[in-house]
């Protein structure tokens, strides 16, 4: 399973390296959203400062939808989905591979978005251990749920519109927990944020475990 995961992750990252869709299309969308929030809320206002953690994670959730859609459109073209089923690859390995590639791309996007928040919103970062731990746990949870719902929607003709409808409500706990953790890291007492991190870690573990078990059935039936 691990070998298959590495193979699939390598393939997805190689496709991104060659096509640069995340860099040339998804990242600019994310930065544009950050700028629009800045225009709407006035960079000098305290409202923007207070809302920064929530805005950051809202942007992450929207780009997640784009990234998941992109990840599974690759598997829907030219019968590749059937080829995956015939390949002999372990379904859990396919899940982990797509999860890992998606998580890596989302993590890279979040690092750039973090710089965007510092530059565009004038926020100073603080509470680094909690920030980084939250980033890792939230990214894992988002990528795991995204991969699971991505394959569920991939077989449908209306996947572009259905995917956000399915995925965004599921990711609401991540949005809330990650926002609270970031708020306490940036403005409060960082130690108060660790329970939110724990929630994110549990979410990530549940969805990763469920994904490994259920991905094969979803690949077959959806």
């Amino acid at each position: 399973m691990w070998r298959d995961a590495l193979l699939v992750a390598g393939k997805d990252l190689r496709i991104e390296r060659r096509s640069r869709v995340a860099v040339n299309q998804i990242l600019p969308v994310a930065l544009a959203m950050l700028m629009l929030f800045g225009f709407a809320l006035d960079p000098d206002s305290p409202v923007l400062a207070r809302a920064t953690p929530g805005l950051f994670w809202v942007v992450v959730l929207f780009v997640t939808v784009l990234a998941v859609e992109r990840s599974f459109s690759l598997e829907s073209a030219d019968g590749v989905r059937d080829a995956l089923r015939l390949s002999g690859l372990h379904p859990g390995g396919i899940f982990l591979g797509k999860f890992a590639a998606l998580a890596a791309q989302l993590a890279a996007l979040q690092v750039v978005l973090g710089f965007g928040v510092v530059v565009l919103f004038g926020r100073d970062l603080a509470g680094y251990p909690l920030l980084l731990a939250t980033l890792v746990a939230a990214t894992a949870g988002i990528a795991a749920a995204g991969t699971l719902y991505g394959v569920l929607a991939a077989g449908l003709r209306v996947r572009e519109t259905l995917l956000p409808l399915l995925l965004l409500p599921v990711l609401a706990p991540v949005l809330i927990a990650a926002t609270r953790a970031f708020e306490t890291a940036l403005d409060g007492v960082p130690s108060d944020g660790w329970p939110w991190f724990n929630l994110l870690a549990v979410f990530a573990l549940i969805y990763t475990g469920f994904g490994i078990l259920a991905f094969g059935s979803l690949l077959e039936d959806s």
Binding site: K11, R14, R18, S19, A77, D78, G79, V80, D82
Partner: peptide
């Protein structure tokens, strides 16, 4: 099959 099962970007 009718499809070639290939990744266009690779």
């Amino acid at each position: 099959g009718h499809a070639t099962f290939l990744y266009d970007e690779l």
